[in-house]
Write a protein that binds this DNA or RNA. Structure first.
Lengths: 199, 199
DNA sequence: ATGTTTGTTGACTAATCAGTTTAGCACGGC
DNA sequence: GCCGTGCTAAACTGATTAGTCAACAAACAT
């Protein structure tokens, strides 16, 4: 039941927002009653933090596989962005909207008001950033890109990635995400293998 | 009074969020009563849209000056990011938090639930993006950068910029914004004039 | 068998929410 | 003097909110 509650919470909050998702609505979707909710969680805010953490834990294994050191560094990004695109597209079929990154949407919404959730998001985002850093470091070591400062490069790509997802949500349009790997390559400083126009 | 209401609305919604900012609170800060509110605006949602638009209209003249075609293209960005940094720092002194970009925060929060606000944000963001596009086009024309596709480059920088502001809000930390011009130059593909280390 | 832990239930507050209503104020035109 | 017009005041509605509470159930240990 605890898991049903966190699942319902992520679903609803991601699709709508933290502020407009009521505890009642979460309970309804989870098939639970208010009492059960407050048996497991002492507040809406604590549930949100738990839900974000649970969601991340679920995705972690998949991230480890996509960003495995056995995969060529630039392919890690390519596969990752492809997965994100597919996931958002599938989700759109269900709810009609492009939802972007839940961490960013929720984090941005509550950051000035809810320190528990804010710190949870902050910590998870930092963990996620590490995948970027290590892939970039590897790419640099293999001479695929020039990134003497992998952390700075990762920050740039990370920001670019999240900015694109945020815009996709606001515009309700996946177009920018579909072509994101191109932008990523550009930000990473990979040489374009442009097909030269004839004549 | 209408202006006092939109000012109060932007202030409160930016600092907190759309969902947690009540009409009562907006009226309080504006020194107005509910009746006045609903005389000028027919709903909270319509006020939010009007407030965002009014806020943008105020900033527009300044944007025009910063992105004036008489300013060298890369300096436009430099000055702009500097202004944004200063603005956020000043605001932090007042409310203790880094607030990021109101368009992005609010847009991301309400995008799936409020089409009026969503479209307002979408339109304003598109207008803002044009400043980037034209500066990049000029920079390319002057041989400062290589950007055969200025729109794509602008999208990348725009996303990177907004992603950075969103992270600054979530982390409540201006650090990333302070150094953003460096990242911007990197994304734009400007050659670093790195001071070579001796020995 | 008996008590304890672990979970569930539904009714309950007390506050807050967006939005309405109605009466009234100050003002200039006529 | 009188009337419309632009705006304000304050009380109100009805729905919704997060969170509480005491009674209850089933499993499990002793």
């Amino acid at each position: 039941m605890k898991e049903r509650l966190t699942d319902a919470a992520i679903d609803l909050i991601w699709e709508n927002s933290y502020g407009t998702t009521s505890v009642d609505a979460i309970c309804d979707r989870a098939g639970a009653k208010k009492g059960s909710f407050y048996y497991f969680f002492k507040s809406k805010s604590e549930l949100a933090a738990a839900a974000l953490q649970a969601d991340w834990n679920k995705k972690r294994a998949h991230m480890d596989s996509v960003f495995s050191p056995t995969v060529p560094p630039l392919e890690r990004f390519e596969r990752y962005f492809e997965c994100v695109y597919e996931g958002l597209a599938e989700r759109q079929k269900l709810c009609g909207s492009i939802l972007g990154c839940p961490m960013l949407s929720i984090g941005s919404e509550v950051s000035t008001q809810d320190q528990v959730v804010r710190e949870t998001v902050d910590r998870i985002l930092d963990t996620k950033r590490n995948y970027f850093v290590s892939a970039i470091r590897d790419a640099h070591a293999q001479g695929l890109i020039s990134a003497p400062n992998p952390e700075a490069k990762a920050d740039a790509l990370f920001a670019c990635y999240h900015g694109t997802l945020a815009q996709a949500r606001i515009q309700n349009d996946l177009e920018l995400v579909r072509n994101f790997n191109q932008i990523a390559l550009d930000v990473l400083g990979v040489q374009h293998d442009v097909v030269p126009a004839s004549a």
